[in-house]
Nucleic acid binder design. Structure first.
Lengths: 197, 197
DNA sequence: GTCTATACCCGGATAGAC
DNA sequence: GTCTATCCGGGTATAGAC
């Protein structure tokens, strides 16, 4: 066993290992489906060892969710800035499919969090509102640029676009062979105003 | 507590009570979030008393899911038969919103079942395939009747329609004030071919 | 920073009486 | 058909040593 002091690691390193493993395991089996002892074992430490870094299971979940949030938000802002909403959302799909582990975590936990009292409920409520408003802003800009029909209500359309992404993600999780960005692109292309030339 | 023999009920009655309560509680907190003892307590019997009717928790979940399936399938078939796919899906939304308890169960459990090894995974995989094929059939018929553009792939479009319904349901569960049938109708109306007159 | 030991609670399922 | 009692496994979190 030799669990000597030599197992020790620098502050940030172990924390990062735990977050990565938690992302994988929560994404596979959901918050309630995994014990912190399972996660600790995979990292190679004991369960109290893990709780030294995150004082509760709930805190670990939120930390795992927030870990990629800045990165993902940044990508979204960048795409929203230089592309039309349609192209930006397809780009986002492609980006997500490249990191299936993070995508699974978000999809599984957002689904799980529709239960009242779920630890991540507040996190996702805030996130939905934020994303919907940002998408709606981008829709308004595209309407001014005559890329989208001005008759559509930006908030209603934003809600719909997010619904399509979420719904397609659910089906992608059941069958990862499906072409997620392709389906998203097909939906969006029917929406945009074609340039006459 | 006088738990006398008088607490006994006729065969089918107790079973139905248990299924109704399980539908509510699984829909509120998910399969893993509720214990069969919780359900038994709400029904007014003991936990082994409940297990007399359903030999395991898993069997109870599947029974609760299948209970409304025949009814819901029948409604779907009826609507699909006499209405266009667009009108049928909006009608289905309205029907669902009228029975929020059953809708919550389906939404929460289908979300939970994206985890490999979840007890209801097989149930929902089969259900998705069945529903998608039925929707695709109805799309083909509407294309022949020139109600939908013939250029669209029926299976791709069916996948998309189901994604929109699922995605809107998720947002409706987070905020039940939202107009689910209205959003669905707005999406579908952009799709159908307007009659020139 | 990590461990062992442990306290404490909860869950599903079974045995057997009434 | 329903109960009490019980088995057994597992979960989170804490105390305290190294």
């Amino acid at each position: 066993m030799a669990p000597s002091v030599r197992n020790r690691k620098a502050p940030g390193v172990r924390r990062e290992e735990i977050l990565q493993t938690a992302t994988e395991m929560f994404g596979d089996s959901g918050y309630r489906g995994v014990s912190i002892a399972d996660i600790a074992a995979k990292v190679g430490i004991s369960q109290p060892g893990l709780l030294h870094h995150f004082k509760s299971k709930e805190e670990l979940l939120i930390a795992a969710l927030e870990r990629r949030d800045a990165d993902s938000s940044a990508h979204m802002d960048e795409m929203f800035h230089k592309l039309s909403i349609a192209d930006a959302l397809v780009s986002l799909c492609r980006h997500n499919v490249e990191d299936p582990t993070a995508m699974r975590l978000y999809a599984v936990e957002s689904a799980e969090s529709i239960e009242p009292g779920h630890p991540a409920r507040e996190f996702f409520l805030r996130r939905y509102a934020r994303v919907r408003d940002r998408v709606a802003d981008r829709i308004r800009r595209d309407q001014e640029l005559h890329r989208l029909p001005a008759t559509l209500d930006p908030l209603v359309l934003a809600t719909e676009m997010i619904a399509v992404m979420d719904g397609l993600q659910i089906q992608w999780l059941l069958d990862p062979a499906m072409d997620l960005p392709g389906h998203m692109a097909a939906y969006l292309e029917r929406l945009v105003i074609k340039e006459d030339r």
